[in-house]
């Protein structure tokens, strides 16, 4: 009875219904993409791009154009900048990624501080799904549809691109195109994730579900389903918990995701810590 009450009580508020639905959708989309991010080894890239979109988001806000457009320009721009600096200097890649994304992020913070009246820094940094506006919901839905349709159409090409881009090239596939597709989806979903968990934590949405599923499955389709299940579960439950404890929604979602990862890390039937010692003991 109490449990029913626990789930039912928040639903009497329209903003909670919206928040739960939007969180679930964002969890779904980010989790789907997270499979490709973890398999391609793009976690650091995801971190970089999701932070680097900040100035684009602020500029788009000021110009009153969809945030996704600004995010897209700066997300792709940051990766081009990383590639350019890496090619032209002797600085190593991890340092280049670190300095570019923090530079972009800092620029975004400066911009926010100058346009404070229209943009709330806290909402962008930490998310504000409980107070999400209808236009933001529309935008999240559009981004989700674009991402899911693209992933559905290019599913096998992207798997091959992540697994063996050499072979993809050898049969005439355009891997530059696939690279930019994945990059563009990353920039777009960073905007979707920004609404729920905020820009600082969005990388968790784009990495953790995929990493959790990777420990639990040896098949891509299965991995995708597990990632989506864990991502949607964390998003919905995280939103509920944040309501009941009156805490940060983004924080609750990501803590839950991390807990699921730790559980998988310990108990995964094949790749978990509990079964691994056998393999580790033998020299």
């Amino acid at each position: 009875m109490d449990l029913v009450q626990w789930f039912a009580a928040p639903l009497q508020y329209e903003f909670m219904v919206k928040a739960i639905l939007v969180s679930a959708l964002v969890g779904l989309v980010c989790s789907a993409l997270s499979c490709y991010m973890t398999l391609k080894g793009w976690a650091l890239m995801g971190d970089a791009v999701s932070h680097a979109v900040l100035p684009g988001v602020v500029i788009a806000y000021v110009l009153n154009i969809p945030l996704a457009i600004g995010a897209f320009v700066f997300g792709v721009g940051s990766v081009l900048a990383i590639g350019f600096i890496k090619a032209k200097t002797r600085v190593k890649e991890d340092a280049v990624i670190g300095l570019v994304f923090t530079g972009f992020f800092a620029l975004g913070i400066v911009l926010i501080s100058k346009v404070k009246s229209t943009v709330d820094l806290g909402h962008i940094l930490f998310g504000n799904v409980l107070g999400i506006s209808d236009s933001d919901i529309t935008q999240t839905v559009i981004i989700s549809i674009i991402t899911l349709v693209t992933l559905a159409i290019l599913r096998k090409d992207l798997i091959l691109f992540c697994f063996d881009s050499t072979h993809a090239r050898s049969i005439g596939m355009n891997i530059t195109f696939l690279y930019y597709v994945l990059l563009s989806l990353l920039s777009l979903t960073a905007v979707a994730g920004l609404q729920t968990v905020g820009i600082i934590l969005v990388v968790a949405m784009l990495v953790t579900p995929g990493a959790t599923a990777y420990l639990l499955s040896d098949r891509f389709d299965q991995m995708m389903l597990i990632a989506i299940a864990s991502g949607v579960f964390s998003s919905v439950m995280g939103t509920y918990i944040s309501y009941h404890i009156d805490g940060s929604t983004g924080g609750c979602i990501v803590v839950l995701q991390t807990l699921l990862f730790v559980i998988a890390m310990i108990f995964a039937p094949k790749h978990g810590l509990l079964v691994q010692p056998k393999a580790a003991e033998s020299p």
Binding site: D157, F163, D164, T166, H167, A168, S170, S217, D218, F220
Partner: peptide, 28 residues
């Protein structure tokens, strides 16, 4: 032109089956 790379270049933990890999030869 079919190319068989060195084994070191393959991510052996990738969640694909033997059948999946061979099917990739047909994508073209």
């Amino acid at each position: 032109v079919a190319y068989v790379p060195q084994s070191e270049e393959v991510d052996w933990n990738f969640p694909v089956s033997v059948h999946d890999v061979v099917m990739m030869g047909r994508y073209g």
